[in-house]
């Protein structure tokens, strides 16, 4: 059953990711990207990472994609689109590069050197004893990852200020 759900979610992820790249219309690319993010949320749920799955749906499929669609709407592009024959030409020389990369990655992943065992972490029982994944992650965020957690607020503040500076009309 778990394998079946994994195959379903990963097929949805990969097919809609390919559609994001392939589709000529940016709005439809964005909609396929939302499908990709939802299916990846399913993959995270299969790995018992409930907190990450929730953040994936809320932050990526919610906030980030709304921002993307908002900008696409704001720019209101002319429907002339891209040159598809040039796209296919670039695809022809880019595909071998990707195949080399995938070959290297798959060799690394399936080599016997990459066999991992439970060694570094706190163990599954520890997460259970904390009262579930969300509580365990929250407790870790507010204890031993507290400083980076606070620094993220500075990162977001810098982003907000930067966006305001960039988007402001120049005064003459």
């Amino acid at each position: 059953m778990e394998l079946f759900l994994f195959v379903v979610f990963s097929l949805i992820t990969l097919v809609s990711a390919a559609a994001v790249v392939w589709h000529p219309h940016p709005v439809k690319s964005a909609l396929f990207l939302i499908v990709t993010f939802f299916a990846m949320g399913g993959l995270y749920l299969l790995m018992q990472a409930e907190f990450i799955a929730l953040m994936q749906v809320l932050v990526y499929a919610g906030a980030v994609m709304v921002l993307f669609l908002f900008v696409i709407m704001l720019l209101n592009l002319k429907p002339r689109g891209e040159d598809r024959s040039a796209f296919r030409k670039r695809l022809r020389w880019a595909a071998p590069l990707i195949l080399v990369f995938l070959g290297a990655a798959l060799t690394a992943v399936t080599s016997p050197l990459a066999q991992l065992g439970p060694s570094a972490g706190q163990g599954v029982g520890w997460v259970e004893s904390q009262g579930g994944n969300v509580r365990a992650v929250g407790r870790a965020l507010f204890t031993h990852a507290f400083l980076p957690f606070e620094v993220t607020s500075v990162v977001l503040l810098v982003a907000v200020v930067g966006v305001i500076v960039l988007a402001k009309k120049e005064r003459r």
């Binding site: 990472a49 907190f51 990450i52 953040m55 570094a120 972490g121 163990g123 992650v137 965020l141 990852a145």
Partner: peptide, 12 residues
């Protein structure tokens, strides 16, 4: 695979 939570913190 490593049965830890650090990877999930990184993802956050």
């Amino acid at each position: 695979a490593l049965e830890g939570l650090d990877g999930q913190l990184f993802v956050f």
